[in-house]
């Protein structure tokens, strides 16, 4: 449990950090996944650049009907900030489910998103929220959609030298109900499956619905088959059950010690129904 020796830099500015990363340093942003790997010597980066201490990346603010969350905002910040709680409750609720309190105090949204753990909680919410992810390198900045950002197991749209600097989520319209429902892997606290739902009503019917699912397969995804089976249909338990049954459609489910592919897929259906039910009850 002793890491190989490494160099550690805590630059004062983002520009400086990006310069070091361009030269091959590895970004550290909370270290909740990287540090344990280093202690086991499963990872041995030679140079770490600490992004979590950059004031430039540590903010949550509202601009033009959107919330801008700096990459260094901790899960605790996202869980508790009045802005996220009040204006994007789905993200705050999701953050509250991450790991344990120690992890939430140190882990950052940028670190989690960039790491792209297939069982991480945030991606489900970001998929449902159709969040935008802002990437920057020494040579420039670009914004990608959540759908384009998460590619596969631990694989994202990040290019070498590029880091996540910001996550942009919509200010939730008042009538939308949202919910994150998670089946916890009790040892690690990761999601066996996690389902984020956003539900609008249209009279007695479902209006537009977004469902994001994490944990089930190599990367998070939008459950469009479920969404399509809800929108325009009566907001009843029967509709919910029928729609949720499509949660794992066309998905190659993961299998591990804690849940076989078959069981995971079944849980995805159950938790999708729970998330829709809960979001519906919170919608107006």
């Amino acid at each position: 449990m002793i890491a190989n020796s490494f160099e550690y830099s805590s630059p004062a500015t983002l520009a400086e950090a990006l310069g070091l990363i361009a030269d091959g340093a590895k970004p550290l942003s909370g270290g909740m996944s990287l540090i344990p790997m280093m202690k086991l010597r499963l990872a041995s980066p030679e140079h770490l650049v600490d992004l979590a201490r950059l004031p430039e990346l540590n903010y949550i603010r509202e601009e033009h009907g959107e919330l801008h969350i700096g990459a260094a905002a901790t899960h605790h910040d996202v869980e508790n900030a009045p802005l996220t709680r009040g204006k994007c409750p789905l993200l705050a609720e999701t953050a509250a489910h991450i790991g344990d309190i120690q992890v939430r105090n140190r882990g950052t949204i940028g670190g989690s998103v960039a790491h792209a753990d297939p069982a991480a909680d945030y991606p489900a919410a970001l998929q449902a929220l159709e969040a935008k992810i802002v990437l920057r390198s020494a040579s420039g900045e670009r914004t990608v959609s959540t759908a384009d950002f998460f590619i596969d197991t631990f694989t994202t749209a990040l290019e070498p030298g590029e880091i996540v600097v910001e996550v942009i989520v919509p200010v939730e319209p008042g009538l939308t109900g949202t919910s994150y429902q998670k089946c916890l892997q009790p040892a690690s606290g990761f999601a066996i499956v996690g389902v984020a739902a956003r539900v609008r009503r249209d009279g007695d019917n479902f209006g537009p619905v977004q469902i994001g699912i994490t944990g089930l397969t190599g990367t998070s995804y939008r459950a469009t088959a479920v969404e399509n089976a809800l929108t325009g249909k009566p907001a009843t338990e029967e509709t919910i059950r029928a729609a949720a049954a499509h949660a794992a459609d066309g998905v190659d489910a993961n299998s591990d010690l804690h849940a076989s592919a078959e069981y995971r897929a079944s849980l995805a259906v159950s938790y999708t129904a729970r998330a829709i039910r809960s979001a519906l009850s919170r919608s107006a």
Partner: peptide, 13 residues
Amino acid sequence: AVGNRMIDMTARM
């Protein structure tokens, strides 16, 4: 010993 939950999906990827 430490990567159980990742092995299956990693292999497939």
